[in-house]
Design a protein around this nucleic acid. Structure first.
Lengths: 334, 334
DNA sequence: GTGAAAGCGCTAACAG
DNA sequence: CTGTTAGCGCTTTCAC
């Protein structure tokens, strides 16, 4: 079977305490025995059990990462960024795709607790705040991506959605558009509402009166984006000349629906997305979009939660990152 | 602090053994005490520590999943399928994006061992077979996706790459193409070679002599697909009328490069991909491609490794799944 | 410098 | 049916 610390101690002719010390670099041991122990560990191909050491009160070096769907390119990219940053500090991640389903969410939370993760990063929608409160009580740090829970003591990393919406709106306005539609994700979400509000503000600032009929709710699927666009195209004369879709997938759905109707993008309809996922570069025309700094988001959220775990920080933080307009081919003058 | 089994036992007026039994449903306990213990656990919001129970020789209910890059849509979809299937049986996954970098791979393997995962699913390229051998010796089941290591005792789930290549070739041939180019991924990989071989065989069976100049190596990035296509287009007169790209990303790169040159797809150039990722539905024209059954791959590989862990299977298995041609808009008659 | 010993929270015989 | 007890592999005082 797998060698234990006892095997190493015995082979090296020392006590397990000594071995433990050389593993962790704690206490004081002579160079000679340290080297000897190291050699024996090498020979035995000894791998200290982190589950045993975790039981002794140390960290598990494991963090839970909940998100709606790992297969969604945006979240996959976020997950990758998180993974990389955590890995630098020796952390592994349990991925938990919840589909924004309360039942799955609860099951995953419960599992994460039982596995004694050192912290949880939440990028999924959260229904069960009772569970979160419990985690906080249990002293398990929580950090959220792209959503906040002001009532709870959690760290937050998000992009400035209002600004992003404003940038999107301004870009379209500068191109001469005045009939600007918005395909929102989900008006129950703050981030979605803020993007919409930002776009509206840009219009107001330009002296354009937003038309309520031009606001429609999509969701997160390609199909829902198509449908939203089809609805907008039904307006005929009142039809928009430009669309701000609140994520890239919706934007692509919108482009496809426009194409169905024989509307060329961008000459007959401009479309701008949000996120700047890999999809934006792949579609034709390439998608103009508001970029979220996904690497930075991953980095910051991991840094926050690790600080929290180390107790280096008592104050919860709220990090607001800046979105950035990336102009490609899907938007153009009226 | 977090309640332990002792807290529950005390509050319920029983021994920890009894509590342990109701948690695990082992041994025989009266309905009355069972209910009582359950109630107390509920009240205390007790969550049994899986790290402690793992130490006692049980499973960690954790599996490592190594892949080249979680941000790559193909692997993200695979990961999602794996996650879902595992979750049904109470397993969590550590995701390990190796970038096919031997150093990262080794670091992750080592970490997985220390964390005492119950098994490892490998979808990344593997350089360090020494590590794998060690795992096998340690009795840690290994299952591979899309690659095999015949020398080692591992389970394997893969798609029939030769058949996929053959299907791709046949489809193009049926459309009347005779000058068919292949953009391979990486000729060091068996799967890549098989796809190429399959396509060639289809050509041979149709009495077409493959032209070596039409075989080029791409990789896994959009850019490399573009470059490969540009190279092919340099052939001018000898230029292909159809391209089989060994993955969707390469195929999309090929389409973009063709467009750069003003070649319309599919009328002037047919392009077929491999994988059937979400990208295939998003690009315009929608990509004809050879579909890998990603859900099925995830399911099968998880089932295999779980069986292995439970010792229900002594014989290693090699599961060969069938690819399927999905015709969309990127291929057409010459 | 090094080691003995007491846990960490739980499981699994083995008694009763 | 229920409880006692001996570990699981490691960390951490506290002596020596």
């Amino acid at each position: 079977m797998k060698p234990t610390i006892y095997d190493v101690a015995q082979a090296a002719g020392v006590s397990i305490a000594t071995v433990s010390k050389v593993i962790n670099g704690t206490g004081r041991i002579s160079d000679k025995t340290r080297k000897n122990v190291r050699k024996v560990m090498e020979e035995l191909k000894y791998q200290p059990s982190m589950v045993a050491s975790a039981l002794t009160g140390k960290n598990t070096y494991t963090i839970g990462l909940t998100l709606p769907d790992l297969a969604n390119p945006f979240f996959a990219e976020i997950a990758r960024a998180v993974e990389d940053r955590g890995h630098e500090s020796g952390f592994n991640f349990f991925i938990c795709s919840t589909d924004n389903d309360p039942a799955k969410e609860e099951k995953y939370f419960s599992l994460l607790m039982k596995k004694r993760v050192d912290g949880v990063i939440i990028a999924s929608r959260t229904h069960n705040t009772a569970f979160l409160k419990k985690m906080i009580q249990m002293n398990i740090p929580i950090a959220m991506i792209a959503r906040e829970l002001p009532a709870l003591a959690v760290d937050t990393v998000m992009v400035d959605d209002f600004l992003g919406g404003y940038q999107a709106g301004s870009h379209l306005i500068e191109l001469g558009h005045r009939r600007i539609a918005v395909v929102a994700e989900d008006l129950n979400e703050m981030s979605s509402r803020e993007r919409l509000r930002g776009c509206r503000q840009a219009m107001l600032d330009a002296g354009i009166e937003p038309d309520e009929r031009l606001v429609t709710v999509g969701g997160f699927t390609l199909e829902s984006g198509k449908e939203a666009m089809r609805r907008l195209l039904l307006l005929d004369a009142a039809r928009p000349t430009a669309v701000f879709a609140c994520n890239d997938v919706l934007a692509i759905g919108a482009i496809q629906a426009a194409r169905e109707r024989g509307l060329h993008v961008p000459t007959m309809l401009s479309v701008i997305g949000f996120d700047n996922t890999i999809l934006a570069t792949i579609i034709d025309p390439p998608l103009t979009t508001i970029a979220q700094p996904m690497q930075e988001i991953g980095r910051r959220v991991v840094d926050l939660i690790i600080q929290e775990m180390r107790g280096e920080k008592t104050q919860k933080q709220r990090v607001l990152l800046l979105p950035e307009l990336v102009v490609r081919g899907s938007t153009g003058p009226v």
